[in-house]
């Protein structure tokens, strides 16, 4: 009886952690033209566990089709550093859409 109870408990815990890990929430920042196109400065985005920055961008473009306009000329930054499209995002990461810059 004890053993069964423990097994059930273990399974419940497994289930919970799997549920928790099945998605991650990141913050997305929009600057300049990207902000004009989405109408937002930032938002929270939930993506499935193991998603890459590319997956996040695809999800954003499906939500904001206007972003397609800058897709070929923008870059991504993850946690304040330029990143490539194959990096896997983690909980609470900050992903920034960087349209062509024009400082100076």
């Amino acid at each position: 009886m004890d053993i069964i109870e423990r097994e059930t408990k273990a399974r419940t815990v497994d289930c919970k952690s799997a549920e928790k890990e099945s998605s991650v929430q990141i913050r997305v920042l929009f600057f300049a033209r990207a902000r004009d196109l989405t109408g937002l400065t930032d938002m929270l985005l939930e993506v499935s566990y193991g998603s890459t920055t590319q997956d996040c961008l695809n999800k954003l473009i499906s939500r904001f089709p206007n972003l397609e306009e800058i897709r070929e000329c923008m870059v991504l930054a993850l946690n304040e550093e330029y990143t490539n499209e194959s990096v896997i995002v983690e909980e609470k990461d900050e992903l920034a859409i960087i349209p062509p810059i024009s400082g100076g």
């Binding site: 600057f31 300049a32 033209r33 004009d36 000329c73 930054a77 330029y82 920034a96 960087i98 349209p99 062509p100 810059i101 024009s102 400082g103 100076g104």
Partner: peptide, 21 residues
């Protein structure tokens, strides 16, 4: 000019545009 994330918008009398370096 090549890599620091700063953006400039030029505002004209008849419109505006985000510049690109």
């Amino acid at each position: 000019k090549a890599s620091v994330p700063i953006w400039k918008k030029e505002v004209y009398s008849n419109g505006e545009i985000w510049k690109e370096n």
